[in-house]
């Protein structure tokens, strides 16, 4: 059984090499790009019509509802207070001296006022720090890193060459680790690439019969961890608009092609 299995893999390898030897080599380099996106943490703000409709639904909800225990209690308190004022009946003093519904409401309101909700604007937002994913909580953020292309360094999505023997998905995982360190935890959403971009090398850099690169983008969601890199200040988490500003026009178009568009 084992020998059979070994033979089969051997045969597969031989066939693969034979095929590769026969086929003419592609003039394109295969490159994998990784699009790491931090999904919004906080829901986007409501627009005018959403606000109006929410208001309407709320009022209709109240109109149709029955009175709650608290409201009944409040009414009872009112009746008791009136009775106490008139002193026409013998009032049950025990019932009156209790904490009234209004007191309860005030206490609850006070507690709510004391509670501090976290601000939507984070520290990074105030400082304009783009290197952390803890910014613009209502928006989608995409990670860009400095990538060496030929002789110059460009700030684009992390990308790297595909190596023989690995699948594109494995390339994507390796590339991300190389660019951002092992601490960045992400969730890749598919084995298939979600986007494509093709570019030609400048004439003086073309060698080995390679004319350019085909970039296959892989999409991943950010889970936890921080980016570790030599050039940390250039590893940025950018919103859609910031992406448009910083990326080359054609490249940006290919990237935005597979990203969800924000409506606010």
């Amino acid at each position: 059984m084992i020998i059979k299995g070994l033979l089969r893999t051997e045969l597969k390898f031989c066939l693969r090499y034979l095929r590769r030897g026969l086929s003419t080599k592609s003039p394109w380099d295969i490159v994998t790009g990784v699009c790491v996106e931090r999904l919004p943490v906080v829901t986007p703000p409501l627009n005018d019509i959403q606000k109006k409709y929410k208001e309407l639904l709320w009022t209709m909800e109240v109109e149709k509802s029955l009175k709650s225990d608290h409201e009944i209690r409040q009414e009872n308190d009112k009746i008791q207070a009136e009775l106490l004022k008139n002193e026409s009946h013998d009032v049950d003093l025990d019932a009156v001296s209790k904490i009234t519904a209004q007191d309860f409401e005030d206490a609850a309101g006070e507690e709510l006022a004391q509670f501090k909700f976290a601000s939507i604007e984070t520290e990074a937002d105030k400082k304009g720090d783009k290197t952390t994913s803890d910014r613009c909580l209502q928006r989608h953020l995409v990670l860009v890193t400095p990538v060496k292309l030929g002789n110059d360094i460009k700030t684009i999505l992390p990308q790297g060459q595909w190596k023989d023997g690995e699948t594109l998905r494995q390339t994507a995982e390796r590339v991300l680790k190389e660019h951002c360190g092992p601490n960045l935890k992400v969730q890749f959403l598919s084995n298939a690439p979600c986007g494509f971009y093709k570019y030609k090398y400048p004439a003086e850099l073309q060698s080995d019969g390679k004319v350019g690169a085909k970039v296959f983008f892989y999409y991943a969601n950010y889970k936890s961890g921080v980016v570790e890199s030599k050039d940390r200040t250039k590893c940025n988490w950018l919103t859609r608009n910031e992406l448009t500003e910083i990326l080359p026009t054609k490249y940006n178009k290919s990237v935005q092609e597979f990203l969800i568009q924000e409506t606010f």
């Binding site: 592609s26 699948t167 979600c194 494509f196």
Partner: peptide, 26 residues
């Protein structure tokens, strides 16, 4: 739009290498 972008990427991958395409659609 997003599905079309993926379809295009897969088509391009098929042109480049059938093996990689087979791996990608797993």
């Amino acid at each position: 739009r997003i599905m079309a972008a993926q379809r295009r990427a897969l088509d391009m991958l098929y042109e480049e290498s059938e093996e990689l395409y087979d791996e990608a659609i797993m």
